[in-house]
Design a protein around this nucleic acid. Structure first.
Length: 475
RNA sequence: CGCGGGGUGGAGCAGCUUGGUAGCUCGACUGGCUCAUAACCAGUAGGUCAUCGGUUCAAAUCCGGUCCCCGCAACCA
């Protein structure tokens, strides 16, 4: 059995700053990566940025810089999530990287040689006011909602298409053979019924003269690839495909994490593309819900945006990770606001883990003996079926709940044992009590490692060194 | 009949796949405690599980109808 674990996030499109939803995605992937390392696997964790397409071009024009300059600045922004959220990705791939572009072209060629790419006329609605193509669903009464007085022009151009329609049966069979392919289940059902309804070929190129920001179509310099087609290839180009075959085989197939808006692209389109290129499908796709603020979608116009930076500023890195992961349940939309975040921070972290650690270390410091924690070092991650199962399902919250239960049990034990009363007259009972408590907190520290790496270290260190720490100052 | 998600004590949620005493966190109230970050512990109150009907010995859970909320177009995962 392969002892490697490859996980990737989607590549966020860089026409805006890092969104809190992506923060959740990348932290979730990081937890899976860290946990699998602790399970003893060799891990490769990929993330990066999607830097092609019309929106980016326009954004750059708006700011009066070149697309590349704009993307460079944005990539830096996204890359900084590494420090901001303490995520240990192994590669930060940019779709403008030379090796990625080459891989995308190779991928295209293979699909083409296998007969899954063809050219046909493509009709689109074009709003002169926006200077943008509009889909039918974007139009209101056949007009652009932003420019109701401007006529919609029908433009026609030749595009390359991908024969998505030929993959319905094969996708359904793959789904059937892999009953855990998409998590959670309800999203799996959704994509299955989408595929069952019949698939349509999709356009995978744009005329270069109109949209120069993209990877050139091999053998046709008039076209560039539509962003989706090249961007999805990053999941394998980051592994060195097609040149480093051994490395590719070592890691692929891998696990993917995405938001619910990406369900189709990741679990159907991309899988069909892999089939078209004779490559194995992904191993699993985790699909998370969205984060809403007070029941509403986050938006600049409503002024209710909560950014990852603001959260880290207020709560610190680990607490932000914790809050992101525990505010909702996996696969469901989460509803948050600052008051609720504060509440959760105080209850679980300040009053819970922080306070417990503090009281136990104070008691332990009163003891004349030192404990040896060495032997319990790896315990929580060896044959922990319960944890493996939760992670497999994407249910990080289950493990967090278990940890919070331990906190409560220890608080309860302290109350029952009253070690501060034993210290004078019952040294044996005192010792026994303190040992149980200290080892309990140590265990919690170890268990926290994938979720809150720094806190985990602080707890472990402070017990080993018998030093008091203040973990989460109450707000 | 476009597609999908949701409606569970004051708030936020779990439970629904595989029907069988309605669970968690926060908040409120009462009492206890001092080792601790005014933290912690014990206990109390509070729910006809949107609604109507069906299946069943038994429905929050399965089936059907109705009502309401939210996404699918927007900077965005």
């Amino acid at each position: 059995m392969k002892n490697t674990y490859y996980i990737t996030t989607t590549l966020p499109y860089v026409n805006a700053k890092p969104h809190i939803g992506f923060a959740l995605e990348i932290v979730s992937a990081d937890v899976l990566a860290r946990a699998n390392k602790l399970f003893g696997k060799e891990v490769f964790f990929n993330t990066g940025t999607d830097e092609h397409g019309l929106k980016i071009l326009r954004k750059a024009e708006e700011l009066g810089v070149s697309a590349q300059e704009y993307c460079n600045a944005q990539a830096k922004n996204f890359k900084s999530l590494r420090d901001l959220l303490n995520v240990e990705f192994d590669r930060f791939i940019r779709t403008t990287d030379a090796d990625h572009k080459e891989a995308a072209q190779k991928f295209w060629k293979i699909c083409d040689e296998n007969g899954f790419i063809y050219k046909k006329n493509y009709k689109a609605n074009y709003c002169v006011g926006c200077e943008l193509e509009k889909t039918n669903s974007e139009l209101v009464d056949g007009k652009c909602p932003d420019h109701p007085n401007a006529e919609i022009e029908i433009i026609e151009e030749e595009n390359y298409f991908f024969k998505f329609s030929e993959f319905g049966e094969r996708l359904l069979k793959m789904y059937k053979d892999n009953p855990d392919f998409v998590k959670p289940k309800k999203r799996f059902n959704e994509i299955i019924s989408f595929v069952e309804q019949g698939l349509q070929d999709f356009s995978i190129s744009r005329l270069k003269e109109k949209m120069p920001c993209g990877v050139e179509v091999p053998g046709d310099e008039k076209h560039v690839m539509y962003v989706w087609f090249d961007a999805l290839v990053n999941y394998i180009s980051t592994l060195g495909w097609p040149n480093e075959e051994e490395n590719f085989k070592k890691w692929w197939p891998g696990v993917q994490f995405c938001g619910k808006d990406n369900l189709r692209q990741q679990s159907a389109m991309w899988q069909a593309m892999l089939m078209a290129a004779n490559l194995p499908c992904s191993k699993k796709v985790y699909v998370n819900g969205f984060i809403n603020i007070d029941g509403q979608k986050m938006s600049k116009s409503l002024g209710n945006v909560i950014s990852p930076e603001e959260m880290v500023q207020r709560y610190g890195v680990d607490a932000t990770r914790y809050l992101l992961l525990s505010m909702g349940s996996f696969g469901e939309d989460a509803d948050i606001n600052w008051a609720r975040l504060d509440e959760k921070f105080n209850a679980d972290l300040a009053n819970g883990i922080g306070n417990l650690t503090s009281r136990v270390i104070t008691l332990y410091k009163k003891a004349e003996f030192d404990l040896d924690f060495e032997k319990s070092k790896r315990k929580p991650f060896v044959d922990n079926i319960e944890l493996e199962k939760s992670l497999d399902e994407g249910r990080f919250g289950d493990e967090i709940t278990r940890i919070m239960k331990l906190v409560q049990e220890l608080d309860r034990s302290i109350e029952q044992q009253k070690p501060w009363e034993l210290i004078e007259n019952e040294p044996e009972a005192f010792r026994e009590s303190i040992e149980g408590l200290a080892r309990g907190v140590y265990f919690i520290g170890l268990k926290l490692k994938p979720f809150m790496p720094e806190t985990s270290e602080s707890i472990v260190n402070s017990l080993e060194e018998k030093n008091k720490v203040k973990l989460f100052p109450r707000l």
